[in-house]
Amino acid sequence: MALVLDILSWAFIIGGGVFSLLSGIGVVRFPDVFTRMHAASLADTLGAGLIILGLLLQAGIGADLVGVKLILILVFLLFTSPVVTHALAQAALLDGERPWTRDGGPTEGTVDVRESEGDAFLVDARAPDGER
């Protein structure tokens, strides 16, 4: 039984490691900041998730509640990482970064900071010297 648990947990940990490695390779390989963020989110979700799952199988719930803390780490990670990713992507776009496309053309949808009047947040983002 202990052997089965060991094999399972190592499979999970190695799987998480593989996804984290792929995530790193993607960050190097992809063409622009937005596509690189897609690659980075691999480590946030399945990478971290599988490693924690594997550690959970090693630790069990445990007398000192290690398992509970591991689950809490995963839950907090899943709540906070999309917020950070969203903030980073929005900052990149509002700062004038244009997403890379295969044909080099503009994207179907975008936010034009200069034309927005109603949204106070976007008006704020319009830096006085931000003419690009």
């Binding site: 897609h38 999309p82 969203h86």
Partner: peptide, 14 residues
Amino acid sequence: ANSITLTPGTISVH
């Protein structure tokens, strides 16, 4: 929006 961002391959930008 968070679900969109949490699934790799899609990011909610605005």
